[in-house]
Simulated scan of single mutants.
Amino acid sequence: MNMSNLELDAEALYRALAAQVKTALAGTERLALVGIYSGGAWLAERLAAELQLDGRLGFIDVSFYRDDYAEKGLPAAVKPTQIAFDVDGATILLVDDVLYTGRTTRAAINELFDYGRPARVMLAALVDRGERELPIAADFVAATVALDAGESLLLQRADDGSFTLSIKHA
């Protein structure tokens, strides 16, 4: 489905994703969420609050772990990775806003393993836009969309915490 002229309701997508996660992971031992900056971090914060995961929330910036670092360069604002819980033996739900090539997810997993060896790593993404370059799939996804060349999705968070999703044209 081409999304160029379609309104994307980020709040409805978030609710759908949260419902999937809550149902599938209810009662999971040693569950922790790790959000990928920045959109995934926002989603993970909100999910962790709804799941009441006090102290079991972390954040990852994959800038230095990407295999295309030399090509892309350093982003304007690198945020520190924050993982203050024991990763060893935990079930980690990695959260990102948009799953595309799989390179960000691969980089996040590589960085996560620098903190320990989780029992399991799962992936939740608000939107999967396909066109994978690596064999990575989300365990939980709210929507799958196709975009035209030169288009990308941008998740934004308002001051009240609500999300909007828009299509950016290159």
Rank of each mutant, 00 (worst) to 15 (best):
3 M>A: 15
4 S>T: 15
5 N>W: 11
9 D>I: 10
13 L>I: 07
14 Y>F: 15
15 R>G: 05
19 A>L: 13
19 A>I: 10
24 A>P: 03
28 T>C: 10
37 Y>N: 02
40 G>D: 06
40 G>N: 06
42 W>A: 14
44 A>D: 07
44 A>V: 08
45 E>R: 12
46 R>C: 10
49 A>K: 15
50 E>L: 09
57 L>G: 00
63 S>C: 09
67 D>L: 03
68 D>V: 03
70 A>Q: 10
70 A>G: 01
73 G>F: 03
75 P>R: 01
79 K>P: 01
81 T>M: 00
86 D>I: 04
87 V>N: 01
89 G>D: 08
91 T>K: 06
92 I>R: 05
94 L>Q: 04
94 L>P: 06
97 D>W: 11
100 Y>W: 14
101 T>C: 10
101 T>F: 10
101 T>I: 10
103 R>C: 07
104 T>K: 01
107 A>E: 04
108 A>L: 00
109 I>G: 00
110 N>E: 15
110 N>H: 14
115 Y>D: 01
116 G>E: 05
120 R>W: 00
122 M>Y: 00
123 L>I: 06
124 A>F: 02
126 L>K: 05
126 L>A: 03
128 D>M: 05
130 G>H: 08
131 E>F: 11
132 R>K: 13
134 L>N: 04
136 I>M: 08
142 A>V: 11
142 A>C: 12
144 T>N: 14
147 L>D: 08
148 D>H: 12
149 A>T: 12
150 G>C: 07
155 L>R: 01
158 A>K: 12
158 A>R: 14
159 D>H: 08
161 G>E: 13
162 S>C: 11
166 S>H: 13
167 I>K: 09
169 H>L: 11
170 A>W: 15
